[in-house]
Design a protein around this nucleic acid. Structure first.
Lengths: 211, 211
DNA sequence: CTTTCTTGATTGATTGGTCAATCAAAATAT
DNA sequence: ATATTTTGATTGACCAATCAATCAAGAAAG
């Protein structure tokens, strides 16, 4: 008979995963040692990790899997299909702002990007759960709105990448390259401007301009 | 007495730097061993590196410095200030396309981004020679065109990031995440669409763009 | 209730291997 | 001969992974 509750096992496991996220985030996969992780998790032996995980790579995989839920905000997509473009773009933009305010997701984002650059397998996994979904949704949405005649006809995949790329670029400028003026350029201004340009650029029968 | 020509010394040094770029690009800074680099450079000892460079980090720095010239395409900026928006955006877009076709610069781009994510010092250096210049130029250009009344008034920094971010996002989708449809979505289509959306979105009097 | 048995959790030490950096000696040029 | 370049061996540190030993706690037996 298992002497310990299965819940206990799972709780300890999650504790290690959570601590590993912090360590991986701050040092990257390679430079994070098993001892770092053990220390952060409050256990006294790096060996213990192998009781809960196959190896270091397995632990890393579990960390990603645990937190990919974060990226799956973009799963409420179906209800969005009928909403007007401004709503949809603002919603996606605001999701980004929220992410930027969250102390965990930015390091996670950097970790995923950094490891994706080195390991194709990680790139594929991250892509499948995150970016690809976003692109596919937005592409389908834009196509629908073009069919409806709300938006101008153009390559929907390219347009979707334009919008999402704008936001990604802002995150990189701010969080990776720490460009000084990204500090004064607020996420809100960034999103509003991006949405504005895209709507103006894609809507059929665009507005009267101030002459 | 200097027994060897200074040119000889410099040539050997460059040979090591060039080989190091290949190795760093394919394996990243951490996983590239001095032996890998020595082999690639056709020298038979990892120890030789220390004759030409202070340490591995110094070699890496030299590699970056040598190739940051690649990023400095964006130095012909002054003459561009007077050109119309479509020309300027297409020019920047085409610079990206050229980069994507070049077998060296894409790995270099990934290397720089990857190491920037891990090491703030690298991020700052890369930023200063590359992205920041691009942003600053485009921001100033957009402000000028707004003053002239050619473009709508909006936050120029945000708008500049939108455009460049669009292109960056495409590179990431294609080269890092290898999204399947990025293969069929040609760089040309991407650039044309991005320029189109931005012009339409930012021009005063949207009907006047070229057919 | 207390003792013994059993199991899984945890530890610390160890192993096997990698790698950056150093160094002395050899090769090469002057 | 002298100075410089190149080499291969070595050093010392670090680390993933393994493993035998210990520990804690529950179950079973008395």
């Amino acid at each position: 008979m298992p002497s310990r509750d299965e819940q206990d096992w799972e709780r300890k496991r999650q504790q290690i995963i959570d601590s590993a996220l912090e360590v991986f985030s701050s040092k990257g996969f390679e430079k994070a040692t098993n001892k770092d992780i053990a220390d952060a998790a409050g256990v006294k032996s790096p060996g213990l990790i192998y009781h809960y995980f196959k190896d270091k790579g397995d632990l890393f995989r579990q960390v990603l899997e645990r937190h990919t839920a974060t990226l799956q905000l973009l799963s409420h997509t179906d209800e969005l299909m009928e909403r007007p473009p401004r709503d949809v773009l603002m919603l996606m933009g605001n999701a980004f702002i929220t992410t930027l305010g969250n102390g965990t997701t930015v390091p996670l984002f950097k970790l995923m990007l950094g490891e994706s650059l080195r390991r194709p397998a990680v790139a594929q996994m991250v892509n499948t759960v995150g970016p690809m979904r976003g692109f596919q949704f937005l592409t389908r949405y834009l196509e629908l709105q073009m069919d409806k005649g709300v938006l101008r006809r153009m390559d929907a995949r390219a347009a979707a990448r334009c919008f999402i790329g704008s936001l990604i670029g802002y995150v990189l400028a701010r969080e990776v390259f720490r460009q000084p003026d990204s500090a004064t350029l607020s996420p809100e201004t960034m999103v509003v401007t991006a949405v504005d340009i895209f709507l103006e650029g894609m809507l059929v029968g665009s507005r009267e301009h101030a002459e």
